[in-house]
Amino acid sequence: MKNMRINKVTFTDKTIDQYSVIIDVRTPLEFKEDHIPGSLNYPVLTNKQRHEIGIKYKENSFLAKKIGAQLISNNIAKILGKIKFDKNSNILIYCWRGGLRSLSLYLVLKQIGYDSHLLDGGYKSYRKNVVKYLEETAPKFKFNQIMGITGVGKTLFLKELAKKYQIIDFEGLAQHKGSILGNIPHKIQPSQKYFETLIWEKLKSFNPKKRIWVEAESIKVGKLNIPSLIWKSMPLGRNIKINASLDERIKYILKDYKYFTSDPKLMREALRVLKQIIPKEDFMNIEISLKKKNYYEFVRALIIYHYDKAYKKTRAESSSSIFDQIYLEKINLSHIRKAINLNKNF
């Protein structure tokens, strides 16, 4: 083993496709924050173990390494009982920076006879590649935007376009609807890093010669930010504005956000935030309808006193040029399909 050659590889745009199995040996918390798409999490240290070893290392590095080796050895034994891939699998292993954690599993798998490789620089080298791509390559893509005030069915429109065209649904990737009522029950937004990984993965699958349709968004989607250079590029293409009647918008919002009317806790939390950002008189107009449980009038007031006023301040309304407009008599899939088929811009 002393003279064993360590097979190290540098992360490139083609790395993921070159391996049948990618193993992330970091802790579950590290993996949850971000990871290489498609990788499997086989932690050689648990969250608690890594934390305790880190504290011990500051007191006595030698003892910490000894205890760490014991824990890693025990955990690798458990990992060997879990892995299902066959001998011919092409395996890439990584940890935070290509150090002892990934090397430990690599050496064991290599001795068994697996075709194993170590990612040089670990997750940090992968993350560096993603950041570079989002800063240098991603802004070169050409974008078209679907625009419109809240409740006109922009996301529904975008999903229909996805059947024929390249699209990025930032709200879908962010697990948030991008408004004051944007929190989705039982959905947790990803970390900023993983959000960027999802965007990177999406862009990598696209033909750079074809335009990408997106929804005109604020740079913030819930707690997350669309990468700034992508966001700045979004309005430079064709901006198509969707319009619909107030009545249609109200009915669509009631259907799209029906979980708010069925869960008072969600509504109270949304209103708590809203109360802090709009004039007192406007908030009172919204609150009156909610107290009466007249949800149609509640959404109507929410549109008039918050959404439409807020939209006038957005980049989409204040500074983006409108290439064409579409009026939807009904906000549903049949009318959206008809609009797409009749409009020469799609």
Rank of each mutant, 00 (worst) to 15 (best):
Q175V: 01
K209P: 00
E171I: 07
K204P: 00
Y106P: 02
Q111K: 15
F143E: 05
K204N: 15
G151C: 08
Q175T: 07
Y114M: 04
P190N: 06
K128H: 13
K132G: 08
T155A: 12
C95Y: 08
P185G: 05
S104F: 03
K209Y: 12
R97L: 13
Y94P: 01
E135F: 11
E201V: 00
L119S: 01
N90W: 00
E196Y: 10
F206P: 00
W96A: 15
Y123G: 02
G121I: 03
E196N: 14
F195L: 09
D120N: 14
M147Y: 03
H176P: 07
G99P: 04
V152E: 08
K193I: 01
F157T: 08
R101M: 03
N129L: 14
Q166G: 02
G182Q: 11
R127M: 05
P185N: 08
E160A: 12
M147S: 12
F206G: 00
Y114S: 06
C95H: 09
K177E: 10
L158G: 09
N88Y: 11
Q192Y: 10
Q175E: 14
E135P: 00
G178V: 09
N88A: 12
K210Q: 15
L203F: 10
Q145F: 00
L105Q: 02
I188S: 14
H186T: 11
L203N: 09
L103Q: 12
K142L: 13
L119P: 00
Q166H: 03
A174H: 03
R101W: 04
K142N: 14
L161N: 06
Q189C: 07
K177Q: 09
G153Q: 01
N144V: 04
S191E: 03
Q192H: 06
V130E: 06
L119I: 01
P139N: 12
S104E: 00
D169Q: 07
G98H: 09
G98Q: 07
R127G: 04
L105N: 01
R97S: 12
C95V: 11
I167N: 08
A138S: 06
N129A: 13
V130T: 08
D115Q: 14
S102I: 05
W200A: 01
H117D: 11
N88P: 00
G98V: 11
K128I: 07
